[in-house]
Design a protein around this nucleic acid. Structure first.
Length: 892
DNA sequence: GTCACGACTTGCTATCAACCAC
DNA sequence: GTGGTTGATAGCAAGTCGTGAC
């Protein structure tokens, strides 16, 4: 329904700022514990990665955004600041820790066959210089691990899967769990397939017998039976150059210009029986069907009180804010509880919705700097100058090396210049004057005093304040992207055919507002203009949208922030669904294994595709239009993207989401190998591998196996269960710092599984160089100190320093102390160096934000007395409010 | 069954501000 | 106090998937 936009009094203008996330304040004990242990290096002789991560901590910063050293101080003050007892502190933790510590070390368990990830996900990488075909170039660079694909670096982190949960006997599922779903414990199938396959010694021979009963045994017992033949198969493979996003001239990594079209044939006739696994009986609480376990109180008294406190904490925080506001609504109306709001009607997302619309970027202010055309300054109108400036400020980006970018820019700019304008060729334009002007402006901004910067910030905040909040069902919630995107040049990724096109300015008349029926219509912030349309659709969560100027059939939405209740609820549902998969996975794997032999080509393709999605965490792979970058996912793989290498290895090479290159050599079951060979036969390089398949068919099939199952659920499932199991397996009851290292290690493994990469920072090599210099410098100091010590012991004075200065005459004890300190410094720097190098291409954040069930993290923190603030930053704490009251015994 | 939306989630990067070492 | 480094955050591109019309 659309109504005329009109202006009404604004109820939100004076709303108070209240964006404080829910943060459990820690008592000082855990902080102390942290402080008391600056030496974080793991004492075990375990993996290199462990060491690297372990060495990270003394530096004061962790890789995931936590500033450990800094936070030590913060922690103390936090504790002081809040008398609220942290619900994360669990008196049982030490018990759990002790239990965990009794587990075998990962290294000890790294059996030859336990190299699934190593072998199967060992060729994922970013690309700048992709190979021109599926065959990857061998890496002839140095031995840096970063030159290897992400997964190739997993070798050190792989170990057995311990399916005996640490919190045995207390695995109570609280929320959203279907009580009828039996919970399986100690089942191999609760592991990601990746791990499971990893445990097999002979993956290529188990086509007919997909479920070796042996698999259900704990790995330790299995490992004794398995040989060592495969142990190094992954690591022995040649590394390839790790780089990112192909240069414009390359259509490589097996990318074909032929895009998959929608299928019009072959339907899926695959009604299947439920694949849900049978419940199992185990010797702990986990064997009790959830339906029975649910009869128990969902949380212990202790936990219930924690929840109470959490709610109280949040409420008081909000009430405090509201107290000052004296606003239209009563204080309590804005109070946000940690509880998910009562479900509304079918498809209904909200009952009442009030907000202030969106804010627009300021109008363009001409600077008057002229570009040169054939060496001569050219007069431009403000509109022409604006677009020229968009281009000029990008002179130092990679886009300047992309002909498509320039071509598209010129095409759109020409429309603004007019047909008969002096400027006809981009090649004759010199944008340097504007570029230099822009650099000067940036420098000026940099040179502003703190006060000036602060004043500008405050002014901006003042202007934006009212747009930052919405009231949803009477609760004040933060709005996400309330700023309309400013005009600019489209920065498509990879080889996007539309890169460089002008993203025109969005006006109020482009924007549709969604708001409650009884809410005042937001005032249009640009005088004389009005909104395109006002809707009152409570079945959607967006507050506003406009058509994407680059792709007018697509939309840009304004949503609530990630910390909002609506988003939280949706997040929780996502994780519940992937948890549910745990109960079905065994059946699903059995079903697709059976499908490998199907005579129906569609069924066979579905089986193989599901196998790849499960095993390699591939994305589904929707069809793409010609005006999008040519990237693929599982269903859109081309023949050239998968090369079978006898006897049973598949070599993957393609550009995935965001044009990130995926390279991997995977040992697969022989039936899969043969099937892929069959799918390829008679096809050209650019033809679809799965020609009978698309994501709709695949997902329709998956839904028959489990309610709501889609391809992407496998990614969440594999990521979360990997975290859960690694945390359980590798937490040895160490101190906070050691536990954080364990977490980061697990986080990194998940990032590698999901192929989450990042660009090496521009300053990386300079930073490494500086670290090396400092290390060398310290080594020099160490040498001098050692000489001085020898002399001191003989009663001789120290020699002059390298720069000829006299040194203090120290006694041997003092010198020994200095030597120890210097050694510690050198060690710390070496660790920093290794960590920096190790993680330079791995993005840990994405998996934390999107794939790892936060309840795993929160429960683990509670069990091991790790302050949650060490793992989740402020944003994540706010985003995962809904997970904070989880029982410490929670397992994924 | 196909297709075109439409609504959301996922993912990387640029920028900024806080922090730390000197 | 300064400059380098870092993590947090904003921004927005690019995915996934559901639905309804035909």
């Amino acid at each position: 329904m659309a109504v005329e936009a009109c202006t009404k009094p604004n109820l939100m203008v004076d709303m108070d700022d209240d964006d404080e996330p829910l943060v459990f304040k820690r008592s000082s004990s855990s902080s102390k514990q942290n402080q008391s242990n600056p030496q974080l290096q793991k004492s075990s002789s375990s993996q290199k990665l462990d060491r690297q991560l372990g060495r990270l901590m003394p530096n004061g910063r962790s890789q995931n955004g936590q500033s450990s050293g800094v936070q030590k101080g913060k922690m103390v003050s936090s504790s002081k600041a809040s008398p609220v007892k942290s619900p994360l502190r669990n008196p049982e933790a030490s018990k759990s820790s002790a239990k965990a510590s009794s587990l075998r070390s990962p290294e000890a368990n790294l059996k030859p066959s336990a190299t699934y990830r190593l072998e199967n996900v060992n060729r994922q990488m970013k690309v700048e210089k992709p190979s021109t075909g599926p065959a990857a170039e061998p890496n002839d660079s140095d031995d840096s691990e970063d030159d290897k694909p992400l997964s190739a670096r997993l070798s050190t982190g792989l170990s057995k899967i311990n399916s005996n949960y640490a919190s045995k006997g207390s695995n109570v599922s609280h929320v959203g769990q279907n009580p009828s779903i039996p919970k399986q414990e100690d089942s191999d199938d609760e592991r990601p397939l990746s791990h499971k396959v990893q445990l097999k010694s002979n993956v290529g021979t188990s086509t007919s017998k997909s479920y070796d009963p042996d698999e259900k045994k704990p790995f330790a017992s299995k490992s004794n039976q398995n040989g060592s033949a495969l142990r190094d198969s992954g690591s022995k493979k040649p590394s390839t150059v790790s780089s990112k996003r192909p240069a414009s001239e390359v259509k490589s990594a097996g990318q074909s210009s032929i895009k998959k079209h929608k299928l019009s044939d072959a339907s899926i006739n695959n009604k299947q029986a439920s694949v849900k696994a049978e419940p199992k009986l185990e010797d702990d609480d986990d064997h009790v069907p959830i339906s029975q376990r649910m009869k128990k109180p969902a949380t212990s008294d202790k936990n219930a009180s924690a929840i109470k406190k959490v709610t109280k904490f949040v409420s008081s925080s909000l009430n405090k804010t509201n107290k000052n506001s004296k606003k239209v609504m009563k204080k309590s109306q804005y109070s946000k509880s940690s509880k998910v709001p009562p479900g509304s009607g079918e498809g209904q997302k909200w009952t009442t919705l009030i907000h202030n619309g969106v804010i627009f970027p300021p109008p363009y202010l001409p600077h008057g700097v002229k570009i040169l055309y054939k060496g001569k300054p050219v007069e431009l109108t403000p509109a022409q100058e604006e677009v020229a400036t968009m281009f000029a400020v990008m002179l130092d980006t990679e886009y300047m090396n992309k002909p498509k970018f320039k071509e598209n820019f010129m095409s759109d700019w020409r429309k603004i210049l007019g047909k008969n304008h002096t400027i006809q060729n981009l090649g004759d334009c010199d944008f340097t004057p504007i570029y230099e002007w822009h650099q000067r402006e940036k420098e000026k901004k940099k040179q502003m005093t703190t006060e000036e910067k602060k004043a500008i910030k405050e002014e901006k905040l003042k202007q934006e304040e009212k747009y930052m909040w919405a009231i949803v069902n009477g609760v004040k919630e933060k709005v996400g992207n309330f700023r309309v995107e400013p005009p600019g040049l489209f920065r498509g990724r990879g080889e996007h055919p539309k890169m460089g096109k002008l993203k025109r300015r969005i006006r109020p008349s482009d924007i549709t507002i969604n708001i409650g029926k009884d809410a005042p219509i937001p005032v249009c912030p640009i005088p004389g203009e009005s909104w395109k349309e006002i809707r009152h659709d409570n079945t959607v969560t967006w507050l506003a949208f406009w058509n994407d100027p680059i792709n007018p059939k697509e939309f840009k939405y304004v949503f609530l922030a990630a910390s909002s209740t609506l988003k939280g609820q949706s997040d929780k549902e996502k994780y519940e669904k992937s948890r549910l998969l745990k109960d079905y996975i065994e059946g699903i794997r059995a079903a697709y294994t059976k499908g490998f032999a199907s005579k129906d080509p569609t069924k066979k393709q579905i089986a193989v595709a599901t196998y790849l999605i499960d095993k390699l965490a591939l994305r589904a792979g929707n069809e793409k239009d010609d005006d999008e970058a040519d990237t693929v996912g599982c269903c859109t793989l081309k023949v050239e993207n998968v090369e079978p290498m006898p006897p049973n290895i598949l070599k993957f090479d393609f550009l995935g989401k965001d044009s990130i290159r995926y390279q991997n050599e995977v040992e697969v079951e022989s039936a899969v190998f043969k099937a892929i060979q069959q799918f390829r036969s008679g096809k050209k390089a650019g033809d679809d591998l799965f020609d009978k398949l698309d994501t709709s068919k695949l997902n329709a099939h998956l839904k028959e196996l489990m309610p709501g199952l889609t391809a992407k659920v496998f990614r969440t499932y594999n990521a979360s269960i990997t975290l859960d199991e690694m945390l359980s397996r590798e937490t040895k009851g160490g101190d906070v710092a050691e536990n954080i290292v364990v977490y980061q290690h697990a986080n990194k493994e998940v990032a590698i599984i999901c192929n989450h990469q990042r660009t090496v920072s521009k300053s990386h090599s300079a930073q490494m160089l500086r670290l090396n210099e400092k290390i060398e410098e310290l080594k020099g100091v160490l040498e001098e100190l050692t000489t001085d010590l020898v002399r001191a012991k003989k009663g001789k004075p120290p020699l002059k320093s390298a720069d000829g200065k006299l040194k203090r005459n120290l006694n041997p004890e003092a010198l020994e102390k200095k030597i120890a300190q210097t050694n510690a410094k050198i060690e710390k720097m070496e660790r920093d160096k290794e960590t920096k190098e190790d993680l330079k291409t791995v993005a840990l954040g994405t998996s934390k934000i999107n794939y790892l069930d936060p309840r795993i993290t929160v429960a683990w923190c509670k069990r091991h007395e790790v302050p949650i603030e060490k793992i989740f930053n402020k944003s994540l704490l706010a985003k995962f409010t809904w997970a904070m009251d989880v029982d410490p015994s929670f397992r994924f």
